[in-house]
Write a protein that binds this DNA or RNA. Sequence first.
DNA 1: CATTGTTTTAAACGATCGTTTAAAACGAGA
DNA 2: TCTCGTTTTAAACGATCGTTTAAAACAATG
Lengths: 209, 209
Amino acid sequence: MSQADTVTRILDSAEQLFAEKGFAETSLRMITTRAKVNLAAVNYHFGSKKDLIQAVFARFLTPFCNKLDKEMATMAAGNPNPKLDDVLGVLAKTMLTGVTSSGQSNKLSVFMRLLGLAYTQAQGHLRRFLRDHYNGTYARFITYLRDAHPELSPKEIFWRIHFAIGACVFTMSSIEVLREMSIADTREDTGIDEVMNQLIPFLAAALER
Amino acid sequence: MSQADTVTRILDSAEQLFAEKGFAETSLRMITTRAKVNLAAVNYHFGSKKDLIQAVFARFLTPFCNKLDKEMATMAAGNPNPKLDDVLGVLAKTMLTGVTSSGQSNKLSVFMRLLGLAYTQAQGHLRRFLRDHYNGTYARFITYLRDAHPELSPKEIFWRIHFAIGACVFTMSSIEVLREMSIADTREDTGIDEVMNQLIPFLAAALER
DNA sequence: CATTGTTTTAAACGATCGTTTAAAACGAGA
DNA sequence: TCTCGTTTTAAACGATCGTTTAAAACAATG
């Protein structure tokens, strides 16, 4: 087994388990067992558990942010005054097509779940890491939103977009639980596409109003 | 120190720490140290850490659900065809006035944070506990929503209300982080009342549309 | 005051955690 | 084939976890 294999398998297992259980509830022994590598491999290749957490985020956030930056620039080049729909459309498209780190299915919910953990479970070091590495893309995105709605104050833009992020992150984070509850409630299942098809107009209505 | 004191102090500390750090990241030693009681007091009075978690939820959910049930019944008695605004208004009022378990300030964000943990960090036992004890109130509330919007399918009701719950839970769960980010973004702070004043019309627009 | 049931206390239990160590296994270049 | 840097392995480290124990302290009752 080559080094790249070992590193990748650790990242895959860690990503999956972190999204499923959170950081504290996931032990290095769970990760290395699932990855079929030796326990010491994490500390050898990454240094510490904290560094592994950052590596998991870096692996999917770096290409995602690069892609988002590029797509945003492309949109702005062909459209001097992008509206909210345009900006959010680029974001949605990037999320749907650009999140493919470990190649497993259902990647979007993992992405969302990790994003949620970053907000609610970040232990300081992760928050600092994300700010230091991805604040640029975030700031540029917010700027597009402001330009699309110059009549709204920066505050209003900030909170509306985070309300929307909240609805997305929460829904996709708890998608399994929610689908179970939905079945118990309504006696019929709801596919993820169907959830997305309801979520998008929900958010559009809330953001535009 | 009487028994009631000890039990209450443990519940207060646990509630605070769970909301702040989550279940796994909060040790019994943190809880008992903050509560200024002996370590063994948790196992003596509650049995186990899982039982303590359930007790924390029970302490604020039981009076909350009782109050919500009563307020809903009162509303329905005086209003044969409550609209969405009425139903959500009762919910909001109950949340703002009825969440006062440990008497500390900023209780609403603790309530929301714990609610979020119940969805995203529930380890099975908690999910079962909540379903067994509070599913009645939940079902009744959903019924009011359905009656208020008979033209919507049960599925649509279910998902819209959970998108809304997501925006609330996420926002209030990460309120400290978000306020920091907002200050960095906009160079001005946002009070919690102000956040609520933006959140409510946001949700209203999304639910009604 | 003595007794009895309840609560608190200090100490220890075994289990599991993240991390470290040192030797073994491996692989490419001389 | 031998060498040397890299990677993997098994074992152990100290720390911390939830839980248990048995004795001490307490409070109420006779």
